[in-house]
Design a protein around this nucleic acid. Structure first.
Lengths: 327, 327
DNA sequence: TCGTGAAATGAAAGCGATTGCATGGATTCT
DNA sequence: AGAATCCATGCAATCGCTTTCATTTCACGA
């Protein structure tokens, strides 16, 4: 006894399959009494439409892909959740693709996606621009935290929040700063570095640049070590994961935070609130990021040749315990 | 100009669509020369099979669902990765479902899954047993870190490793222990508690039980507070997240770890290695867990009435810096 | 030389849904 | 009353692929 189809329902109700289909998709086209009868029968048979059959005729898969470079990076689960929630609301499912940090894998997986999904959200993609462009020719793609000319994107703009962070530190008496740079391949890393540089120049304070370091805990430990050799009393870390590494390295060497040095992170992942001291950071509006990305993608799916659209959402400065007055 | 189909390829090669299909799926059935010609044409046209069409006729979606109660819990991303890697190898894609900690959502989403996926892996499901059983009637399901009679499951058995942890602490001189229990609804929490109790009884040491606490950082802070009121010099926390909360609470109150108290966690999530002091814990073999779950699921998909199959994989004790000699 | 079996291929029937078009009956307009 | 209109419904084609069955071709043994 296979699963129920519109035909079993049709037979049960003495109507045609077309009517059953319409009862679900264009209810205003069938008479109320028939509609009710059909819906009841469907419930009774525990009917679930075959998305394969529907997809075949409509050309829609009812599924969007979310590509992340590394699902174990605490930044992404929040994004995943936000995207899924939004997708769910519009009746789409979420196919997750973890590239395990490899650009090659990323490219391969995205190419396999065509025909399986209606579009993809590529979060912080590591792929070369050319590969992304090519993929975008075949499939609606929205970039998250990366921009590329002629492609839609949703990014978190931390410029203002990083200024706030700088002012916060300046107000606490700091005059000498360090920038612990993230991976040079990361678009976000570049933007953040630029924002910090600009602030420092505008304020006329000292800024030493260290790195680039990997955006991992380990990378943070190295950054912490490098930081100690400088006169900087406050440091901007590329992201929270790295900042945590810095914290650990400083603690291991008996340097007190925020007593001796201040550290600010970026992203505001769970870790930032659970580490000791709690990390002063720049919070990314993850929910908004995910929801907006999904909205833009939806638009592209519905109107395949809509013009690309770039959105930027501001991060917000969140002072906590890893920053304090100069010693 | 729509996407390439087997018909465009067929036309291009002067063969029938059936032959093209066979060239992909049963290559041994077509002559080598034709096969080559077809594959080349496919590459040239950048052909991607329509999974909808294929799914419609084969009845297979080429997709498995992975249901997690909370993707932001650092335990799951590792599982996600392991499952995805295995799924990818057998040509399946991964549909992720985050229930956002709600059993009701879990049930609703799983029910929507039928017809979209070939089977689902339910990780630490919160749903009532009845709901899971019912869903299993319609769709192959493999449980992870939970067992249920007559259903397949893959669990991490930490009993032996927790014994090892106990012995390790005993060897360091500890004689008075605390058990910081996890959520009572969690199957894993029960098993872990039982293992600790058994060890303590066997060893003839004191064991106070505290909790249950929520399996979060916050829950850990509370657990830490409770711990301070006891004479225990060593504590078993339900999981790493909770252990981190304990660490933070103890630190905040000037209690040194491992100087004054020792703490052991469970799972060995990223956090465990990045927190200070690095957490002594029981490592779950995430890769194996994910891979095994996927294997069992595959078997059920291929042979729908195969008998249920339960696998248990041992965790391994991993001493780090949060345990030390008694004060 | 003819029959036989194996190998390669083609023709065509679905899989389960959607949807344009046709139809028939009821309703409304003149 | 007859024509025009509209609403609810059915018919049938279609989406792209797999798969069964039939057909063709060819090699081989008798």
């Amino acid at each position: 006894m296979g699963r129920a189809t519109i035909y079993s329902i049709a037979a049960m109700c003495g109507v045609s399959a077309a009517t059953v289909s319409r009862a679900f998709n264009r209810p205003e086209l069938v008479s109320p009494v028939v509609r009710e009868r059909v819906l009841r029968a469907a419930r009774e048979l525990d009917y679930q439409p075959s998305s394969a059959a529907r997809g075949l005729v409509t050309g829609r898969a009812g599924m969007v892909g979310l590509l992340v470079p590394d699902i174990t990076n605490p930044f992404f689960p929040l994004l995943v959740r936000a995207v899924q929630r939004t997708a769910d609301r519009i009746g789409s499912a979420l196919m997750l693709i973890d590239a395990e940090e490899s650009a090659a894998t990323e490219v391969r997986l995205v190419n396999q996606l065509r025909g399986k999904v209606d579009g993809v959200i590529a979060a912080s993609p590591r792929s070369p621009a050319a590969a992304l462009r090519e993929a975008a020719g075949e499939l609606p793609i929205v970039l998250v935290n990366r921009t590329l000319r002629e492609m839609s994107s949703v990014v978190c703009d931390n410029t203002a929040a990083l200024f706030d962070a700088g002012e916060h530190l300046y107000g606490l008496g700091h005059r000498s700063f360090a920038l612990l740079a993230g991976p040079s391949a990361s678009w976000a890393a570049g933007r953040r570095a630029q924002a910090v540089r600009r602030w420092a120049r505008g304020r006329g304070v000292d800024l030493v640049e260290l790195g680039p370091f990997r955006a991992t805990y380990k990378g943070g430990r190295q950054a912490g070590e490098a930081l100690i050799g400088t006169p900087a009393t406050a440091a901007f870390a590329f992201d929270d994961l790295m900042a945590c590494g810095v914290l650990a390295e400083l603690a291991a060497r008996g340097v007190s935070v925020p007593g001796d040095r201040s550290v600010v992170g970026c992203d505001d992942v769970l870790l930032a609130q659970t580490v000791t001291p709690r990390l002063t950071t720049v919070s990314a509006p993850m929910d908004d990021l995910g929801q907006t990305a999904m909205e833009v993608l939806t638009r592209h799916i519905e109107a395949p040749d809509a013009p690309p659209e770039s959105r930027r959402l501001p991060g917000v400065f969140t002072p906590r315990d890893s920053t304090g007055p100069t010693p």
